[in-house]
Amino acid sequence: MKSARNHKLAFWLTFCPPTLWMLIFLLVPILIIGIFSFSAKQGLVDISASWVLDNHIRAFDPVYLSVFFKSIGIAALTTLICFLIGFPVAIGIASAPKSWKPVLLMIVVLPFWVNLLIRTYALIAVFRTRGFFNFSLEWVANLFGIPFEPLTLLYNDAAVILGLVYIHLPFMILPLYAGFEGFNKSLLEAASDLGAQQFKIITAIVLPIMAPSIISGCILVFIPALGSFLTPELLGGPSSQMIANVIERQFLAANDWPFGSALSMMLIYLTFGALALRYFWLRRRNFSSTENKP
């Protein structure tokens, strides 16, 4: 590690290109929508930076507030389901024989590389009213001679949650796997020697020790799920719109840029709020764990 002062030319050569890119294509655009969120629309196209709070107040209108709550609810439920599936899968993979681990991990990670749109489309093909799932159910029903009506599985909130779980599951499994790999297994052995049952070992030892990686996994699922656009757009019904869909409509259909900007700034605040919670939780945990040391 060298000091930037002593190697000025090399420092600026490596510093400037990525920083400029960030500045031009990230910070300036976000600053612009930040200013827009306090602006008023004048006529059809003109926007004046008048520092009004109207857009933010309008975002607390019951119509939009319910969308916010719904999005948070859907993202939270997605996170919970991902955890309930991901936790047993992760600790199972982590305790697999050495030759199995890379294979199982690759199986879990590979869908991450497959296009989001294609995976969502595959879900539509399977679960639509005349899709494979209903078709198989019908086949089973006919086998037993039960009359069968195809189920409507898509275009509701449950379908959105199913789609989000389907897409975000790898994000939960990987940190949990790393967390379980990383701690000293003799603790489990000690607990077992002292007579703790399997379930007790998991709740009293594994879960508390893995808490930081569980939080990481939850954040990695919650944040993208909260801002997801494509899944509710394709799998959701008219009432299962999430924040991102409302934002998109403000820009591409309703042409109300200031209000759309205010909504997206609030989505950004929510994202950073979730990250801040994690940060403070980790800091408190580290603080209290150093305090308890003799």
């Binding site: 060298k2 930037a4 990525p18 960030m22 929508i33 909260l226 656009f229 820009f251």
Partner: peptide, 30 residues
Amino acid sequence: FRFSYKSVYEGIILVPIIIPEICIGIALLV
């Protein structure tokens, strides 16, 4: 290199990965 506010810089580099895609999309559109 060592430089001041390095940890902040490291955080900013990760922002495009963290913030929702829709926000980047509309910010760049504008």
